[in-house]
Simulated scan of single mutants.
Amino acid sequence: MSNAIVTLKKGAGRTLKSGGPWIYDNEVASILGNFEDGDIVLIHDFDGYPLGKGFINRNSKLTVRMMTRNKDAEIDEEFIRMRVKNAWEYRKQVVDTDSCRVIFGEADFLPGIVIDKFSDVLVVQSLALGIDRFKVLIVDTLKQLMKEDGIVIRGVYERSDAKVRKQEGMECVKGFLGEPFDTKVEITENGVRYLVDVKEGQKTGFFLDQKYNRKAIWKLCPGARVLDCFTHTGSFALNAGLAGAESVLGVDASELGVAQARENAALNHLEEKVEFRCADVFELLPELEKRGEKFDVVILDPPAFTKSRNSIKNAVKGYREINLRAMKLIKDGGYLATCSCSHFMDYELFTRTIGQAAQNVHKRLRQVEFRTQAPDHPILWAADDSYYLKFYIFQVCDEK
């Protein structure tokens, strides 16, 4: 804790005042008092009105990340325990907690930290200097709360290896927090078994945000021929297989991902029904079209094509291309499940892009449903970055 006061420029802080979690470097008029980067500071509006407390880091464009709107709150162990307890109690009410995201940064009012639970293992990603100081306390508190609920955590692995840490003036960190353990962790989601590689897998090892979207495709799959593009470790493909698909082809450009997907297929005794191929989806879809291939269901779960506003135009081209190619491969009256996990590809733009793709290939879309990320990844209104996943299911019909 410091005695420093950050004062905003006149007219600045509009997002903050509407509930947003950050203060940007160009919104700060002055910083008075003694402090170190990572310390908790008091925030004042230009006229001296107190707006709350957050931790400061002048290395980052996000100069202050808010911890509370209460100017009198002490950001101490008791405060952190309260935040962690609230996050865990929320998960217990809204999701299956066998495997789930337990803490989702700003959306849980603990900015800059993500913690995923895979069965009896926790994976931590700490991305901000201020919250890094509380990392061990947050983990220990979680373990204690879970123990009270009869859940014994056998290990914790840190995946603070994202490049964004360097923007905070921090080194990338990866390794065990506590005693070493086997980093291949078996989980079950929607009845599907997976081996999650928390050490080498993408981000924290597995994408939990699509949990209920994967379940949503089950009703489309009995007896169907299914194509799952950007399958990663096979999650949508395996859900389709267990749901009763006649055959499933999962495609991904990562050899490691495809190897893990095959391993997961064997774990679920689906090797004969679910096939995986290492290929570039942008190259494979036109090839399948040339061969006259048709599918009852096509699933598109691509990585984020844009991680900044500067590359949105190229991202739109990419999303339009894969969606129109997919629509060409779907039998008349078949189904398309398509999504974007890019925050910058917002709902309106994503929706418009899919509509353009359908027009270009003379297909009519009937919307079955629109979904977003699972509720263990809560969307905090005014914190735009917390809303990133858009997921549509359409019936695709020929123009007649």
Results as ranks from 00 to 15, higher is better:
D149S: 15
D149H: 13
G150R: 12
G150I: 03
I151W: 08
I151M: 12
V152P: 00
V152K: 13
V152H: 13
V152W: 04
V152I: 14
I153K: 05
R154M: 08
R154L: 01
G155Y: 09
V156A: 02
V156S: 06
V156H: 02
V156L: 04
Y157D: 01
E158D: 15
E158T: 06
E158P: 11
R159S: 02
R159H: 07
S160W: 04
S160M: 08
S160C: 04
D161V: 07
D161G: 11
A162N: 08
A162E: 12
K163F: 11
K163L: 10
K163H: 07
V164M: 09
R165T: 00
Q167C: 00
E168M: 05
G169L: 09
G169D: 06
G169I: 03
M170I: 07
M170E: 02
M170D: 01
E171V: 03
E171P: 01
E171I: 02
K174Y: 02
G175A: 13
F176C: 06
F176W: 13
L177Q: 09
L177K: 07
L177V: 15
G178I: 09
G178D: 07
E179F: 05
P180D: 13
F181R: 09
D182W: 06
D182N: 15
K184S: 13
K184A: 13
V185D: 02
V185R: 02
V185P: 00
V185H: 03
E186L: 01
E186P: 11
I187M: 06
T188E: 15
E189M: 14
V192Q: 06
V192N: 05
V192Y: 04
V192R: 06
R193C: 07
R193Y: 05
R193L: 11
Y194T: 01
Y194S: 05
Y194I: 01
L195T: 14
V196Q: 05
V196W: 08
D197Y: 08
D197K: 10
D197E: 07
V198S: 03
K199R: 14
K199Y: 00
K199H: 03
E200M: 11
E200H: 15
E200C: 03
G201D: 04
Q202D: 10
Q202Y: 15
K203M: 10
K203T: 11
K203Q: 11
